[in-house]
Design a protein around this nucleic acid. Structure first.
Lengths: 243, 243
DNA sequence: CGAGTTGTTGATAGTACTCAACTTGCGTGG
DNA sequence: CCACGCAAGTTGAGTACTATCAACAACTCG
């Protein structure tokens, strides 16, 4: 075939948006979806690995990730983004790249601010996403600070599995997971080789296996134990009135 | 003397609040400070090391920090809180403790939510704080993932110096810093001994010295270099319309 | 002047990194 | 249909950084 077939769906009408229940605009009643469309300034499709230069967008399909590099050129992945996530590309040196082929809705910063200024519920929905981002970063910080390689890998895999579950993208025994080992390593502060060894150990011990773009959870209790997993799900304090 | 003299000031009237320019309520015009007072449900004083059980509060004087423990009992400090910071104690297992003697204003969660629901500017001010929290956590994550001990220490010291500067609590050559080495270690994922050695190395090399509750920056360029310091100050994307 | 906390130092053991091959899987092109 | 060329995944050996354990010094407070 001449052109690679595009299997990644483009976002369509906001009124019928499949990811809206998980997204910033989940709080906007159906009667007012029209206002959402005016905030959307573009719809885009990117290939796996491509950088995303838009400042604010809602991921519609595919995965993305935010990252920085240290002056000596090593990469630190700061967060992974799943469909429905609101992503901001700030000017502090962090970049955003597509991890898989992906599509997203670009939001006009000024119109979004205006909308939030008019609708406090939307502002709180935005804050709610920030609180979740923060909770995730805190967990990851604890991983990098206090867990060994196997624990870090197990914890990240559990986190991603949980996030996917909430969107219906996973079943109890596993989920599709497009991460390369290099992504794991760069997110967890490990070398690729060491991440590989940790992953191999998890597989060897019958705990979990990440292969061919799929995660299989083989022994959930053992995995939670290794990861120091806290089942407490970090409920937002101030934004919980909504939703 | 019978009773230890209390040198930590208690918060007074909101209208004359010294930390309000840096705090959540900075966006409330002077004419409406009365509404702030109705959100404040109590004023408290805690001693260094004490746990804080209130869910939402604005630190007025002194330092605090948020932390968790892993199942094997090691502590990870998630963030340090300075006067003016809004602090939320979520139910995800994280705790908040006073690092020095400290005082703060307890906020009534429901009344604060109601206020934010009525005043989108306030909600955006809240979001702005969350964005800053996130940026700080991202920097720290990069430290733990990709910097060695000296780099981590140097980076954290620079971060705290910067935050203090913004509040007028530091001059160019240094600042008062009440951290123990154990705090540094637990924030940076190091053992106390290793944090000590890193600190000693910074002192030996004439880069920076942390002693007797005070940080002295001896060679700022060298310190920034060690820390992989990015001068770019992480400007909020969506909340920048305010302030 | 003790007693406990905080800071310092040394020796030793681990964990994770680096470097260097080598293997596998897969798409392109001959 | 198979060879080639990469990208991703593995494996091994040697090294570096950091943790742990154990004292000990310095400082603070009562």
């Amino acid at each position: 075939m001449a052109v690679k077939t595009n299997l990644t769906p483009l976002p369509g009408a906001c009124a019928a948006c499949a990811v809206r229940p998980f997204a910033l605009f989940r709080v906007v009643p159906q009667a007012r979806v029209g206002e959402i469309a005016r905030v959307r300034s573009a719809v885009r499709l990117v290939r796996s690995g491509e950088a995303i230069r838009d400042t604010v967008f809602t991921l519609y399909a595919g995965w993305a990730f935010s990252w920085t590099t240290t002056p000596d050129g090593r990469r630190q992945i700061l967060d992974f983004h799943l469909p429905g996530d609101l992503v901001e590309r700030s000017e502090d040196g962090a970049e955003v790249s597509a991890l898989t082929d992906a599509s997203f809705c670009v939001l006009a910063k000024d119109r979004l601010c205006e909308f939030m200024g008019r609708d406090p519920g939307l502002a709180m929905s935005y804050a709610d996403g920030l609180v979740r981002d923060r909770a995730r970063l805190r967990e990851r910080l604890t991983s990098l600070g206090r867990r060994d390689a196997m624990g870090r890998v197990a914890h990240l895999l559990l986190e991603l599995h949980t996030r996917l579950s909430h969107r219906g993208g996973a079943d109890r025994s596993g989920a599709p997971l497009p991460l390369k080992q290099a992504h794991l390593a760069d997110a967890l502060g490990l070398s690729v080789e060491h991440a590989n060894r940790a992953l191999a150990a998890l597989r060897r011990d019958g705990v979990a296996a990440l292969q061919k773009g799929r995660l299989d959870i083989l022994d959930r209790p053992a995995m939670e134990d290794l990861a120091g997993w806290s089942s407490a799900p970090a409920v937002p304090v101030l934004t919980s009135l909504k939703a």
